[in-house]
Design a protein around this nucleic acid. Sequence first.
DNA 1: ACGTTTTAATCGGTTTTTTCGATGGCATCG
DNA 2: CGATGCCATCGAAAAAACCGATTAAAACGT
Lengths: 297, 297
Amino acid sequence: MASDPTIKQLKYLCAIAEKQHFGKAAKSCFVTQSTLSVGIQELEQSLGLPLVERGRKSALLTAAGENVVKRASEILAQVRALKEEAASATEPLSSRIRLGAIPTIAPYLLPDTLALIRKHHPRLQLLIREDLSANLVSLLNQGQLDLILLALPYPVEAAYTHELFSDPFVLAHPVGHALEKRNVIKPRDLRGHDILLLEQGHCLRSHILDSCNLTNSQISLTFEATSLHTIVPMVANGVGITLLPKMAVDKGILKGVSGVATKAFSAAGVQRGIGLVWRKASPRVNDYLKLAEYFAR
Amino acid sequence: MASDPTIKQLKYLCAIAEKQHFGKAAKSCFVTQSTLSVGIQELEQSLGLPLVERGRKSALLTAAGENVVKRASEILAQVRALKEEAASATEPLSSRIRLGAIPTIAPYLLPDTLALIRKHHPRLQLLIREDLSANLVSLLNQGQLDLILLALPYPVEAAYTHELFSDPFVLAHPVGHALEKRNVIKPRDLRGHDILLLEQGHCLRSHILDSCNLTNSQISLTFEATSLHTIVPMVANGVGITLLPKMAVDKGILKGVSGVATKAFSAAGVQRGIGLVWRKASPRVNDYLKLAEYFAR
DNA sequence: ACGTTTTAATCGGTTTTTTCGATGGCATCG
DNA sequence: CGATGCCATCGAAAAAACCGATTAAAACGT
């Protein structure tokens, strides 16, 4: 079977088309005339037809040769484009990063941070997927995502976890609630109260339970919500109390809601970690670390 | 400077994209795994960025890698297209031939012959240019034309002349003309008669003069026309006599014209030759010879 | 916990290809 | 008729491509 033409050969041919002269074409390609000559011959052989009409005065192209040149120059242009794109992609934090984030982080951390990142790295295309931790980890390990933003601790299999900062939980209770008068609040003070949590599958639920040493059975009323935004009005209505990520409170989840007060825990450890996770083999660790700086502030 | 990626390398990369596995990709490229491995590495080096994420389970593409693959597959498709076009062009009498012809041949020889050629070689693209011999020869030697159809003899510089057949001149005279009664007509019988010829520059003029041993001064009335079609009615109106290529008469130049009679010369040599001319260096002599067969019949 | 397997990178050596300088052939020009 | 210009060809040297074997590292199985 006839082998493929070489990019070099196509270049030679285009040079001939331009210069109409073997020697000059060779010079413009920085090779000797003999090299270019055999290059053209090989190309003609591999295509099975004469491309250049060797005259004494000048080297003209065959009709077929001109067609080939037309296609060849397109190919060369595309190759150039490929190289240029690749070159621009070597610029850090460019091209595409597919980022996953869980629902109890994304709405509070991403808007500001992404705006900042976008400002500094306009060439970076960040695709966001919001999903539960388990799904994100699975997608990451399948290669469908490049980077995920999780609450820690979380088992991420073979992936690498880069912790960013810790996010304390704060108590959110109806105004006038029995806990309001206490100066100091510890996890054990929660026992016996109706605690509203997200439904199973949200890692926030287990992080809260774990960090407060509670079990499912110790929660007297397990009213399960699908989002923090649905829990807040329930607290306002006196249905129960809840723990909110400080991150969410800082970003104004209580804004416009009356009848809910917050209180920080005096004990340490009532918190979750926030971290980035990527595949160990990932070649863009530098990019991820740079992104981490934006998330960490 | 970074060297160009190789077509082979692009193939390797696309194979990886498809198989997501070095070994399998290598097999599909009919090379060993090591060959493909270094090929990919070279490509990555020349582009200056990682394209493949070598996992233990599978070889995934980087974001940049996917972009490159997209472009690469386009390039490969174009290369394939180039090869296919070239292959189809090896079929004889395909692609393009730029044919020049003089005004005293083209209208009489081309219509029928081109129809025949078109029928047998539908893939052949014949571009026709009608011009005076001198211009055609110049265009041929400049490479603007591939083949020209001339009346012979004609000096064609370095080109090669392939004679097809001879085209006798016939006398065309008004009905009732003095020459009508003669059984035998020789060139010298023309002397003293008003002979209508094409203007200077048309080779037909000099061919007639030469073949009849006439000089410009021997023509009593030098009424110069720009085309044979304008001469014929002038003959019909008794303005003079003329010599017409038999070819033109055969193809009906006198059809619908009354009052003009024709007579063959009894002497040999009152004729012009018809021939194809191409550059000696032309690589498509086979095609031209094949075309010559159509013109010669 | 420990071999086994899988997978890609690496190494060493051979073959192939590429490239160059020099030479040759051919046609044109002075 | 020699000089010149141009492309093809040749021979040698350099570069590369390629292969098979081996290594390294991780995943898998027992």
